[in-house]
Structure formats: structure tokens, C-alpha cells
Amino acid sequence: MRYAGWPGRRRVSRVFENEQRSLLSLDAVTLDAGGTRLIRPVTADIPLGARTVVLGPNGAGKSLLLRLCHGLITPTSGRLEWLPGTAKAPPRQAMVFDRPVLLYRSVAANIRYPLEATRVPRREHAERLREALVFAGLEQRARQFAPTLSAGQKQRLALARAWALRPDVLFLDEPTAHLDLAATRDIETMINAIHHKLAGVILTTHDLAQARRIADHVVFVHKGKVIEWGAADSFFDRPRAPEARRFLNGELFE
């Protein structure tokens, strides 16, 4: 499954290796609400073709940061730039939420709805629906009313539905926060199966073990501030910030 248009990892990987190009660059991005500063100035780069994990304790502002990147909320100040240095328009994006938002319709109708609403060419619908059902492991449940699925099946459906839109960039907000271990493993397997075809996967989690399993790149957030960001290996082996060290040792409680 390859898509044309925005540079996927394969096409850009050469560039990536040579120049370390970034997918998204945040320049002094802040967010205020009701007189409170929720996100303190963030300057960070999300690398191209990587699985970036936004890591931090609950209430750190991970989800807000993800929504800022996706454009669900507008920053109070600062700039976001996709593929900085090129004149590319923002990539196609899709997002999976911590509590999957399923329409009160069948499993198949849930996959088909965004295909129709976002004007994916009609001739591709059947094939994409079939692939999404297989991807989610829900071929046998295509006609089932989606709200009656189990929590794990719901999130698999949400992820497969997002993938059916063939985004360039996939955002996932705590996708396994409400799932058990088996369902969590299913979701992680699905993410790993598609991330090669994406220009980037950006996922938030408070789960350190999950971050270690998935991350190529880490953005560590604490109290509305990006404390540290960089390659996952160096973050986990040699964290620079004291908060990051305490979080990795399981000692960060506030």
C-alpha cells in the first residue's frame, strides 16, 4: 500500500538520512485559556518518517500539544510549520482519540462514512473498506452495531478507519489508555504495521513501557512545558533534564 502526493518515508528517506529533515517544527508555540498558560513556549522538531512519542505524566499537556499539532486548536502565539524549508501544504492527517469516537452505525458504515465525507474517490471505497476490516480484524463483524463492540475492537476500528483515509501523518492520543494488555498489543502491532507508509506517527502516552516499545523519537512534556526532546535511545539512556530522569525512575509524582 503506497500513496502518492506527500513525501512518504521511502521517498524522503534518502533526504532524511542526509539532512535529518523535520516533519513539523514548532516555534515558540503557546496556548492560553481563561488567563492560564496551558502550554509554555514550545520549540521542538518532529522528525520525518519516525514514530514520535509525546511522553509525560497525566495533565502535562500532551493531549493539548497533539491537538495543536493536528490543528484542532489554534495556538495563542507561535508558529507551526510542516516540512520546514519547503513550500508544501500541510499533509493529510488523521487522529485516533483515547476514547474512540464511533458513529451510531455499523462497523462498515463507520469506515465508509469518512471516506464519503472527505471525498475519497468512490471507486476506491470498496477496496479500502475491505482492507480496513481486515486490518482491524473485524471482517466477521462488518454488520455489527459499532457501539456494541468491546473496547479493544472499538479502538482497532478507530485506527483502521483513520488508516483508511490514507493520511500522511497519524496522530494518536493515548490510544491504549483504557485498554488491557492484549488490546494494547493489538493497537501497537497495528501502528507498527503501517508506520513505514506514513510520513510520521505522533502518539501521546503516560506509559513509559509503551514509549520504550514504540518510540523512535521522544518529546518529554511536564507541566505544560517541553522539557526535553530527541532520539529515543539517547533519551532513555542518557536523559539530560532532571525531571526526565525522575520520570524514567518512576519518581515524578506532580
Partner: peptide
């Protein structure tokens, strides 16, 4: 009630609320 659950997902899909009216009416049919 239905829209509160849907709103963010529809925003993510880039579907304006006014275009989602028939969808939500149908999903709230019961």
C-alpha cells in the same frame, strides 16, 4: 448529546458542523 461525542472527530476529519447536521440527525434517530 450525540454531537458532544462526535464534534472533535468531525473537526479532525475537516467536516464542518453544518454539513454534519444530517449525519447527527440520523445517528440520533432513536
Amino acid at each position: 448529546d450525540v454531537w458532544q461525542g462526535y464534534a472533535e472527530q468531525f473537526r479532525s476529519w475537516g467536516i464542518r458542523p453544518i454539513r454534519a447536521v444530517p449525519t447527527v440527525l440520523w445517528d440520533a434517530r432513536v
